[in-house]
Design a protein around this nucleic acid. Structure first.
Lengths: 229, 229
DNA sequence: TAATTTCCGTTGCATATGCAACGTATGGGG
DNA sequence: CCCCATACGTTGCATATGCAACGGAAATTA
């Protein structure tokens, strides 16, 4: 368990919780590490006793099955990430998704809600865990809201404009250094890659922007912002 | 304050907290009700001492200002809704948005994070408040994820198919009774209203669906689900 | 250096869709 | 019963964009 504790220090859920405290906390959480072979289910859609999990080793797939049995992949979660936190925290009665090991994996599962509800002991580290969880949920919230802001726009040009303006790193030179390559950006904005390239080129030719790789320079801020607002 | 307490019983943040407990809690939270005249700011973009707020009366606008000073409306929050919870819970150091009274309003503001961090007293109702907040954040998370699922699809037809399949209310007759009218649905899915109508008609003519008002019947489930998965 | 892969821009084409304008049905209020 | 408002469907048109296929530049590997 000690090496697990070491691993967990890289996990946002356990920020500021270390050493003895972490070990205690894992006991409070009734945390256990299970091995799942590739293809095995951590829990199934419709289950009501699903838990919060952390991928210690390997990878899990979040899968949704419709009423006719068609399956679709919602997300793939690698180590050292967490899953199930939104479902557990929202107290959704039965899980709308299945979680399946995408390869042989080690998964830590724990009773998060039980700890939250029975926080009678008021340990310092209980409080910190809850804070961490709120921070995770809230940050994801902000992230999702931003993404929706882009996706809601109709044209590729509007999406690009909004994205670039939001990613200005140097306000003086109006430089946007973005963390995505073309394909990732296209994916993120929900547009076709070649269509993105095309639009970027047109915007360059019109003198709105210039770019090289992932560094974008905004040449006509007013024109861009008019697209966004 | 007592009538405020009555009002707050309709607010999800205070579910399962009533009477004396609620009054105590409001003290712990350092909750105060302020009046803001139309146009006044509850807090401004860049402020670091923003708080969680509840619209008791009136309405507030969430506004974002870009580096050139252009303003855009992000959201309008009517009573009895809450705002600022994601920012506060994610501990975002400075607010990326301003909040402005859209009309003469009464706003309750409180120190949520202070209570969370110093939950030394471990009152039952502290725990419940935190649980409620987590539930709010997590539920919003699930809601946003669902919306992104729709928005990420490229064609109107795919969006409609995904939406209808997700809203099947009667699995036997494959009926989707949806809570939105056409304009709202178009808005939600991020498409033009007339384009939505057009696509719905085409899908009807192709025998995929039939509909009247907000009641949709799925005639060819396989064809629809193929669009979604 | 040569070979290979990855990333990105370009282009032709078919089609989807935003937009605007108008027509139709339905229901509520006078 | 008529008027009016609201919600929806319809359609023409210009254009944006997905898709597929290709080419070149740059980075990586052998």
């Amino acid at each position: 368990m000690k090496e697990i504790a070491k691993f967990l220090r890289n996990c946002k859920l356990f920020t500021n919780i270390e050493g003895e405290e972490l070990l205690h906390l894992l006991t409070c959480l009734n945390a256990k590490v299970y091995k799942f072979n590739r293809g095995n289910f951590i829990w199934m859609q419709g289950d009501s006793d699903y838990k919060v999990g952390i991928v210690v080793e390997g990878k899990v797939n979040i899968i949704k099955e419709d009423i006719m049995g068609n399956r679709s992949l919602i997300a793939a979660i690698p180590a050292p990430h967490i899953f199930g936190e939104s479902l557990v925290s929202s107290e959704t009665p039965v899980s709308p998704v299945s979680v399946q090991a995408a390869m042989d994996s080690k998964i830590m599962l724990f009773d998060f809600l039980r700890l939250v509800k029975s926080c009678g002991s008021a340990c310092n580290y209980h409080t910190r865990l809850i804070q961490n969880m709120m921070k995770i949920l809230a940050s994801k919230n902000i992230y999702l809201n931003e993404k929706i802001d882009y996706l809601s726009r109709t044209t590729t040009r509007q999406k690009v404009a909004a994205y670039l303006i939001n990613h200005i790193t140097d306000a003086d030179s109006l430089l946007s250094v973005i963390p995505l390559n073309r394909e990732e950006l296209a994916d993120y904005l929900g547009v076709n890659r070649s269509a993105l390239s095309r639009e970027l080129s047109i915007m360059r030719d019109e003198g709105l922007i210039s770019f090289k790789k992932n560094i974008f320079s905004i040449l006509n801020y007013d024109a861009l912002s008019e697209l966004v607002f």
